[in-house]
Design a protein around this nucleic acid. Sequence first.
RNA 1: UGGGGGAUCGUCUAGCGGUAGGACGCCGGCCUUUGGAGCCGGCUACCUAGGUUCGAUUCCUAGUCCCCCAGCCA
Length: 564
Amino acid sequence: MSEQAGASNFIRDIVAADHTSGKHGGRAVMRFPPEPNGYLHIGHAKSICLNFGLARDIPGGICHLRFDDTNPTTENPEYVQAIQDDIRWLGFDWKGKIFFTSDYFEQLYDFAVRLIHKGEAYVDHLTAEEMRAYRGTLTQPGENSPSRSRAIDENLDLFQRMRSGEFADGTYVLRAKIDMASANINLRDPVLYRIRHTTHYRTGNKWCLYPAYDYAHPLSDAIEGITHSICTLEFEDHRPLYDWVVEQAETPHRPQQIEFARLNLTSTVMSKRKLLELVEKKLVNGWDDPRLPSIKGLRRRGYTPEAIRTFCDHIGVAKRDAIVEMQLLEHFIREDLNKRSPRVMAVLRPIKIILDNYPDAQSEELEAVNNPEDPSAGMRKVPFSRILYIEQDDFREDPPKQFFRLAPGREVRLRYAYIIKCVGVTKDPQTGEITEIHCTYDPTTKSGASQEQRKVKATIHWVSEAHAVKAEVRLYSPLLVTDPAKIPPEHDWTSYLNPNSLERMTNCLVEPSLRQTAHGMRYQFERLGYFCTDLDSTSDLLIFNRTVSLKDAWAKVEKAQPAR
RNA sequence: UGGGGGAUCGUCUAGCGGUAGGACGCCGGCCUUUGGAGCCGGCUACCUAGGUUCGAUUCCUAGUCCCCCAGCCA
C-alpha cells in the first residue's frame, strides 16, 4: 500500500496554514503524549496517525513521542515498551525524539518556584474534601482558601519542604492562584503539585512531589517547542488553563492546543479503564486478546498496520462526537487482505464425502491459484483423493430456495477439481444424523482442463481426508451485544459482554500446505474469510484466528427467507 | 439555573452565499470455477422557527437536542 498524505481535516488546515505563514518559524512540531498506564488501542491509532501523519506530510515536520508519566501510582515500564512497539508496528517513527515528562521534573519545579515568586501560586493545606467544598459547584462560585493569602516566602519555604519529603501524602498541594469565582471550574485555583510518597518507575524515590497534568503538559510542550498540541475534546475547557500556565511560566515558546473528537466504535469498548478491567478480571485473555480493539489485540487478530492507517485516514478528524461502525474497520482490512493474502482451503465444520467412482488407491495433485488478485503469487498443488471433507453448511438434504450448493441429486464443482453429484447419504441409524455423503465425480470436468462449458451453480471448498491437517480455528464476534453508548451508566457494563465473542472450532481440517505456516501469517480461507496463524499455534496443533469473514451473500439470502 | 463544545444520508465525513459530494452500509443488476473479488445503477441528509439576501447548509436572531467539566487522574 503506498504511503499517501492523510486526508484533509480542520487540524491539518490549521497546521498547514501556520506552517505556510511562518507562524512558528516554519516549524511543525507535533507530539503524541501517552501516559504509560495501559496499552494503546485503535483510538490512540487515530491520534498517532494524525500527529505522526502531519509530521510526515509537512516539510520539516516532526512528531515527538512523549511519555506523560506524572502519576507514579499507575505507570510502569511494561507499558512504555508496549507503546513503543505498537507505534513502530503501526509504521511510525519518532526519529529519536523520545521524551519523558519525568525528565522535566527539575525544570518543572523551577517554573513552579517562579510562579510562587510572582504570587501566581500558593501552597494550600486544605484536605481534598475541604477543597471540593471550597470549589463551589457548576452554578455557584467557589470561595478562597484561607491559604490563598499566604506570604510568598512562606509558600516558597513550604514548597521546598514538600519536595524534601517533610509532609505526608495529601497534606499540602501547590495551587495556581487564578479565580475561585471563574465560571470555568478548571480555573478555580487548580492543583499544580501533589505529594505522593511513591516510587516512580523512572525517577525512583528522588521525588515525592509530582506535577499535575494541567501543569506538566503545557510546559512539556513548551520545553519541546511543540507547535500544535493536539488533544481530545474533553480538554477543551482546560485550554484557558493551558494558556495560563504557559503565559505565567514565560516560556520563550508558546504552543497551541487544538482539540478533536476521540474515536468510538460500535459494539466494543475503548476506554482505558474498561480495557484494563477486562484484562484484570480475566474476562479476556490479556491485552493482546484478538477480541480487543487494542493494537496488540488487532495485531494478533490479523489486522495489518496498513488497514488501520487507511481506516484512520477515512474516519476523518472533526469536533462532533461520533461512533464509527465496526463495519468500516472491517471493510478496510478486507480490502487490504484481499489484495495480499494467499488463498488456501480449510474446512471448519467437516462432513465426509465419498466419491464412489473414484479409485480407492488413487490420488492426484491439483493446480490451485494462490491469489487471483495477484498473479505473481503463483500456483500450488493441492492433493485430491476419494475421501474428502466439505463444509457442513455446503450440503442440505432438503435444500431451501436459492440454495445452490450440494444436495441429493445436485451437482457442484469442487474448487480446483471436478464436478461432483450427490447420489445418496449414509445416516447414523440411532440419531438419524448424516455421517457420509456419497457422490460421483465426472472425470471429464477437471478444473482448467475441461473444454465443455458445463455450468454448475456453486463451487465449494474441500480437503482430502488422507492429506488434511487437523487445526483449531478461533472465531471472534463483537465483544459487546450492544453499542457502548446504549448501555445505561447505572448498569454493570460487563453484563453486556457477548458470551460468544470467542468460539473455538477444534475439529477443523486444513490443506497440507499450511503445515509450513508461521505465527502471524495471513491467509484467505476460501469462501470463509481471512485468517492468521495464532501465537499459540505449534507444529503439533495449528491454530488460526479469523480476522474477518468474507462477505457472505448466501447468509443474507437465507436470513431474508421466511422460516421453514 | 454556570461554563465550554457540537448538530449534514442508517454510520463517518466534505462543503466557507450559487441550490448538497465521497466512503461504509443497504437495495437492484452484470460478471464469476470463492454466493469472494470486480463492475454498473439506485437509496436516504442540511435540528427547528424566524430574519438578511435575487439566492442560505453556509450570515443574523431565538429556540431545541446531544456531549464535556465540580480528581490531589490524564
